Simulated scan of single mutants.
Amino acid sequence: MANRSEDVERYMRELQHSRKDEVERLRAAILDAHPGITERIKWNAPSFCFKDDDRVTLKLKPRDCVQLIFHRGAKAKSARGFSFEDRSGLLQWVAEDRAVVTLQDMKDVKAKKAALSKLVVQWMESTTPRE
């Protein structure tokens, strides 16, 4: 995983969370999903970027699960004209352009890992502005 950040490594060493193993497994899966994915800390949690723009951020509260927030960057963007086809069925839409995936435990992470990796790449590629 060449895209690992020292800041995130430090954060993970200090993290005290009941689902830390799940967080590490998700982190590895996301970074391995596409060579263009990088990471940093955002909202006091690991966040995954594509072309230097945050797209998927871990939410570590409540502590009995792990959530991935699928968003379109650090700044709010209009939902006008935005659409996304979730072929995985994993996303729970919390706004017109923001969704959440909730993972309860390691069994859930393992069962959804392949679909989640594809979903992350699909999200990042489809929400990144064309150059």
Results as ranks from 00 to 15, higher is better:
R19H: 15
K20T: 04
K20M: 07
D21V: 11
D21H: 13
E22S: 13
V23S: 10
V23A: 12
E24K: 15
E24Y: 11
R25H: 10
L26I: 10
R27Y: 09
R27M: 10
R27S: 12
R27L: 06
R27G: 03
A28Y: 11
A28H: 13
A29M: 10
A29E: 09
I30D: 06
I30M: 09
L31N: 05
L31C: 06
L31E: 00
A33C: 08
H34P: 06
H34W: 01
H34C: 05
P35L: 07
P35Q: 12
P35K: 11
G36K: 12
T38M: 07
T38K: 09
E39A: 09
E39R: 02
E39W: 03
E39N: 06
R40T: 15
I41G: 05
K42S: 15
W43L: 02
N44I: 00
N44G: 04
A45K: 02
F48Q: 04
K51I: 06
K51W: 08
D52A: 15
D53H: 03
D53F: 00
D53C: 09
L58R: 06
L58D: 08
K59R: 15
K59S: 12
K59D: 10
K59P: 04
L60G: 05
P62C: 08
D64W: 00
C65R: 14
V66Y: 05
V66P: 05
V66E: 01
Q67H: 08
L68S: 03
I69L: 14
F70W: 01
H71W: 05
H71G: 09
G73D: 02
A74M: 09
K75A: 11
K75D: 14
K75S: 12
S78K: 10
A79L: 00
R80T: 13
G81L: 03
F82A: 06
S83G: 07
S83K: 13
S83C: 10
S83I: 00
F84V: 09
F84N: 08
E85V: 14
D86S: 06
D86W: 01
D86L: 04
R87Y: 01
S88C: 02
G89M: 07
L90N: 03
L91R: 03
Q92M: 06
Q92E: 12
A95P: 01
E96Y: 04
E96N: 13
D97K: 13
R98H: 08
R98G: 07
A99G: 06
V100C: 06
V101N: 02
T102L: 08
L103I: 08
Q104P: 03
Q104I: 01
D105E: 08
M106R: 10
M106N: 08
K107H: 11
K107T: 14
K107E: 15
D108Y: 03
K110F: 01
A111Q: 11
K113T: 14
K113S: 11
A114F: 00
A115K: 15
L116V: 11
S117E: 12
K118C: 10
L119Q: 01
L119T: 04
V120Q: 06
V120G: 03
V121W: 08
Q122E: 14
Q122P: 00
W123A: 07
W123N: 02
M124F: 09
M124G: 09
E125P: 04
E125Q: 13
E125G: 09
T127V: 05
T128V: 03
T128N: 09
